[in-house]
Design a protein around this nucleic acid. Structure first.
Lengths: 230, 230
DNA sequence: CGGGAGCTTGAGGAGGATCAAATCATGTGG
DNA sequence: CCACATGATTTGATCCTCCTCAAGCTCCCG
């Protein structure tokens, strides 16, 4: 049940100026001059399965996903686990730390991930300049949450997982990495066994082809047909 | 399928200074002096069933719910309707208009509602002073969305509707108003028939007692037991 | 080679979808 | 005031999906 924290040694200082996702990031609007006034942003490497933070932890830092995939999970009173959001490249993790003193979810990497670590001190100091981007990132968080309800918690398991495959990677991406069946179940709101059977089913339908462990080639047309009805 | 727009005559100018939900509202931090510089805020009355705005409409105004209940709905490619959020007193509707040029959802009143109408011009003009409250409201929107996934789209229909009853009104509220079964189904991700049967089931279990049309008295202890595992 | 974790597969039963019909509530016109 | 039309809700019957429990399988690692 317990996943280790990322060891301290997977952090690194990096320069924002040349960041490959600067256009997507919170700091998109800042000038190099703005950035030069701030201490260097740390780069966090988070291996698949590692926990970034837990629900209830005091939140003093937010993150931007550079690479990889993270899940946000919460527990129901009866202990049921539910994944309420999947976060990809460009998404911000832990935004609630800017408003509230603890994190709302447990954030765990589903694929090996790289993140920018942004202490909220910096965010507050630059809040005026960051305002438009902050709002955009909040907006993204809401969109992401609604996507989970709308696409991944509606219809049959077959349809849900077809939609998951469609959102897991951009349409032009050659291949598409999935994750453990237990987690697939927790995103779709079904059991692990149903998730497994649904994946098998998509393979048989020719909607996806497994080219490696949890690595799939997708037939977008077939996936879309299934996602929409059947 | 079509619901009429609110007629223009259900608007009224009101003074924010004495607003009964000012503590909950976006303008909580503003002084009376700040407010006196702004044109009066309009009060919108929205009868149950009426549409506030539709997905794709150009968004030039956001709303605060003073009273009543609203749903945010979206459609899947196949036409399936899904309610992705329920908004109550104090919640903000249409926040995305501050970031994007159109609304993301269709917003419809489930109960008779009263809202403050806030043109985004005002929001932008006061954005600096509003910044902390805006962030709080975004945060609320995210919480609300995650609640929908976590509580209302997980487990059996019986458990889902028990949780719906628990969130529909504060614990100390004497009674609790429900809404049409079609909509109950769209919130829970089940059919209307299943929603109807689940309500009947809760009545038989003594978890709720119908005291009028769609008006219920709740037994919180029983509801919580059912919500957690039954 | 043995063990474990994650994944798949199977059989049976419960729960939800679907289609259809009955009931209830409301409003309208005679 | 009643008869009737309309729409929402409830109930019923049947089928299909998904859950549950259990057993096998595969891959990786010691």
């Amino acid at each position: 049940m317990w996943t280790p924290r990322p060891p301290a040694n997977c952090r690194d200082s990096v320069a924002c100026e040349g960041c490959d996702i600067r256009g997507l990031a919170l700091f998109a609007d800042l000038t190099d001059a703005d950035l030069s006034l701030e201490p260097a942003i740390e780069d966090v490497r988070l291996p698949a399965g590692a926990t970034l933070y837990r629900a209830g932890d005091p939140g003093a830092v937010i993150y931007t996903v550079r690479e990889g995939l993270l899940k946000l999970e919460q527990y129901l009173p009866d202990g049921t686990r539910r994944i309420v959001s999947l976060l990809r490249r460009g998404h911000v993790v832990g935004l609630e730390a800017t408003v509230f003193d603890t994190y709302e979810h447990t954030a765990i990497a589903l694929h090996d991930a790289r993140l920018c670590r942004l202490p909220i001190g910096i965010i507050n100091r630059l809040s005026e300049k960051l305002h438009p981007q902050l709002m955009k990132k909040w907006h993204e968080s809401v969109l992401q949450a609604h996507e989970c309800t709308r696409d991944l918690a509606t219809g049959s398991a077959r349809r849900r997982i077809a939609r998951l495959f469609l959102t897991l990677a951009p349409p032009d991406a050659g291949s598409c990495r999935l994750f453990g069946r237990e987690d697939v179940g927790a995103v779709l709101g079904v059991t692990m066994e149903t998730a497994s059977r649904a994946v098998t089913d998509l393979k048989k339908s020719g909607a996806v082809r497994e080219t490696g462990p949890n690595l799939f080639e997708r037939d977008l047309a077939v996936l879309e047909r299934i996602a929409a009805e059947g």
